[in-house]
Every structure is written in structure tokens, then in C-alpha cells.
Amino acid sequence: MASKNIKLLTNPLNLDNPITVQVLGICSALAVTVKLEPAVVLSISVLFVLAFANVIISLLRNTIPSRIRIIVQLVIVAALVIIVDQVLKAFAYSVSKQLSVFVGLIITNCIIMGRLEAFALGNKPFPSLLDGFGNAAGYGMILIIVAFFRELLGSGTLWGFQVIPDSFYEFGYTNNGLMILPPMALIIVGVIIWVQRARTKELIESN
């Protein structure tokens, strides 16, 4: 694989992360990260939608009339999202209930429209596929990190299993209820941005 193509996959994980660098798709990062399971399912759903939408738009890129290109993008994204929603309802009903409205909101996830406009419309299908995978992975990675800390500190569980032993609670340890509320997701995302900028030279602004 050419190094240019590898960059498409790895850049969104760090230097060009959709959430921590471009600050896109924050809304769902706040909403579905109380527990690990919905965060993982939403990440996989976004991965599916973004990769397919990128490839489809890229295949059609020379035929799409430029005046209605946003509409075309929306129709394709919406169709993919409905497919995801229907499949979840059929095969992962309890998860689909938890995610409820957020699956539908993938349609308006800024990352997806952003990648279609900025990348898929001007590039060949294979690089578009990689770009989709990379960005969805960058997005999912942050979602999962945030969900990990929120579930661990907020509920004392991971993936629904209790990990903090009962003896801790007997000594007076309590779960941090604030972790379950949306503001803590923002603060965790903020901490991740802080750590990332402190460790990555390219991201340090000069002034």
C-alpha cells in the first residue's frame, strides 16, 4: 500500500482526528458514551455508513450534477442509515432501543457530510474507502475512550460487568454520578485534546 494511502488511514487517528482536532461529531460523543456497548455499536454503525457512503459517492462523483450534490449525498447517507437502523432493530433490538434517535442522527453527523464533500467527491473509490475507514476509526476511538472512563467511573462496570470489587464500596467508595451526565463527556474530550496537543508537536500552535 502506498504511503499516501496509509496516511489516509492513520492521519485521522491522531493528527487529523475528527473529534479532537476538527471538533466534528461532538454531539454523539456526548450522548452515547455513558456505556461502552452503545458507543461501540455506534462506532461500528458510523464506520459502515461512512465507508460505504464515501465509496458510493466516489463512484458516482463524475455523474453527480453539482447543483444537487448535497441532496444526492444526503439521500445516500440517509438510505445507508435506514439500513443500519433496520438491521439493528432486527438483530440487536436492545441496543437499538438504547441508541434510539442517535442512529437516525448519523445522517446529520458532520463527519460524514464533511468527508463526502471534502474527500469522496474528488478522489477515487479506494482512497475514499480508506479515508472513510480512517475517519470513522478516529471517531470511534475517541468515543470508546470516553465511554471507557465514563462507564468505569460512573457505573463501576465495563461492558455491563462489574469491575470495581464490592470491597471498595464497603470502604466507602461511591460511583461518580456526574460521570453519567453529558457535561463529563465534554470534560473528558477536553482532557484527551489537552493530552494529545501536549504530546504532538505538529498540533502545538505557535504564537
Binding site: T63, P65, I68, V72, V75, I82, Q86, V87, A90, Y93
Partner: peptide, 28 residues
Amino acid sequence: YTFIYASVMVIIVAALLSFIALQLQPMQ
């Protein structure tokens, strides 16, 4: 071209979605 493109796209997408919805309905 724009009109034809939009119409064909909508018909294809609608047919695809109805097919999938019907297939998954019993499980849902």
C-alpha cells in the same frame, strides 16, 4: 440531466429500502 438523475436515484433508493424493510419485518 439533473431531473432525470434525481428521479432515477430516488426510485432506486426507495425500491432498495422497501425491499430491506420487508425482509427484516418478521424479525423486528
